[in-house]
Design a protein around this nucleic acid. Structure first.
Lengths: 237, 237
DNA sequence: GTCTATATCTCGAAC
DNA sequence: GTTCGAGGTATAGAC
């Protein structure tokens, strides 16, 4: 009656359904037509006609079953830790596909925070003349510091990296690490904190100033030699 | 040649394709079989057989076009601010669906931070005996405070709410607001900071202590009267 | 398992 | 438009 759903295939269902969710939070989605996806890894997605984010979902590793009740197809998905379940009740099924997809290659992504870290470690001078990295992921009571090192005057320096424009949250994070190291290292001179990102918001800049922290403008991508782009008015259509 | 894609319908494509992305970051996904979804609102999703998150995507509001080149179907998606584009090149199409879905009702979600806020505002004593809320979203130089009020001794109190277990980041956030108000309010006695959440990690608890901030255990959901659950060994199968 | 921080985060709301 | 913080965030890495 409660049949486990075919492994090794991706299932898509289109139809009029309602969705119940109960777990970390709980929700009810009244009847409407949606696209439901069941992946072989135990992922469940319920997509509406709008939004990038599914309206309901389950992460990989869930158990899916299907059964019928009162002429309705019911899909049930459960997981534990945290205990969560999604129930989809179809009153109409417009389409059902069973897709056995062959897909192995890896995605190659560029422009991450890791790329920014590598840029600085291979050429520390782009961060600041004379900076010497000493550790990455250096542990403190407040968490791990992205890059820890010394500046040209041997002053201990905490570096926090962000791949994009930073707001107040990133300033807090850096402040927390600098505070923690200030307590841990019994030095007279204070520790420097550098926030490294492509740009910074006004409020974040003010907070940096108030807390004697510094900002360094750097992007994950290697900057092009010619930053000015020539724009001519040739007709290119 | 570059045909705009049918509005008002959701399109799904299954087939062997490669995906190029360039924008805030950039990526290349070598050929493999995937499910591609084009929503009427301009959303693009590329899903593999694993993961809840699409391997590539575009948010709502993008422009999608399709054309063929060398016997290949090419889907192109662009947006501006930020300038981003995704190109999907199909060498094989296994399935194409055009779905005109009728779906209007709203999702009803319970257990959010807003629910926690409402609980405290309607019954402030569950936070602390004698607490009086004065403002929500009170602005400071560091951002808006969830709840601002006074305790039973008229001490200004900043309340930061989290719907789930909190780590060091939430402590930083509260610390930032308390710091900002300490500068803004010219009071002799210091301001109290309360972090309200269902639970707290060890490290976060230590940070709270170091910064003279406090933790209050509260959940978005109303607690059941009987927290102990009777478990008998009757056979319920 | 839990903890910590990142993300092409997404999303909504305020300005 | 930008800014800011929440999210059932998801995801990866470390312990």
């Amino acid at each position: 009656m409660h049949d486990p759903i075919k492994q090794n295939a991706m299932l898509t269902l289109v139809g009029r359904c309602e969705v119940d969710y109960d777990g970390r939070a709980s929700s009810y989605l009244p009847p409407g037509e949606r696209l439901v996806i069941l992946k072989p890894d135990g992922t469940l997605l319920v997509h509406r006609t709008e939004q990038r984010t599914p309206v309901n979902w389950q992460p990989p590793g869930c158990t899916h079953t299907a059964h019928t009740e009162d002429d309705q197809l019911i899909i049930h998905s459960t997981r534990s830790t945290p205990s969560e379940e999604v129930t989809i009740t179809f009153e109409t099924v417009l389409q059902l596909s069973i897709l056995e997809l062959d897909d192995s290659p890896d995605l190659a992504l560029e422009g991450s925070e890791e790329d920014l870290r590598q840029r600085i470690l291979t050429e520390p001078d782009i961060l600041e003349e004379g900076f010497t990295p000493q550790m990455t992921e250096r542990e403190t009571a407040a968490g791990a510091v992205d890059i820890y090192g010394k500046d040209t005057d041997d002053v201990p320096t905490v570096v926090e990296l962000k791949r994009r424009r930073v707001g107040p949250d990133a300033v807090s994070q850096l402040h927390r690490y600098v505070d923690a190291l200030d307590r841990e290292l019994p030095v007279e001179r204070s520790i420097r904190g550098l926030l490294v990102a492509p740009s910074v918001t006004d409020r974040a800049e003010r907070l940096l100033a108030e807390e004697n922290l510094e900002f360094v403008e750097l992007s994950p991508e290697t900057t092009t030699e010619n930053t000015t782009t020539q724009v001519t008015d040739f007709d290119t259509d």
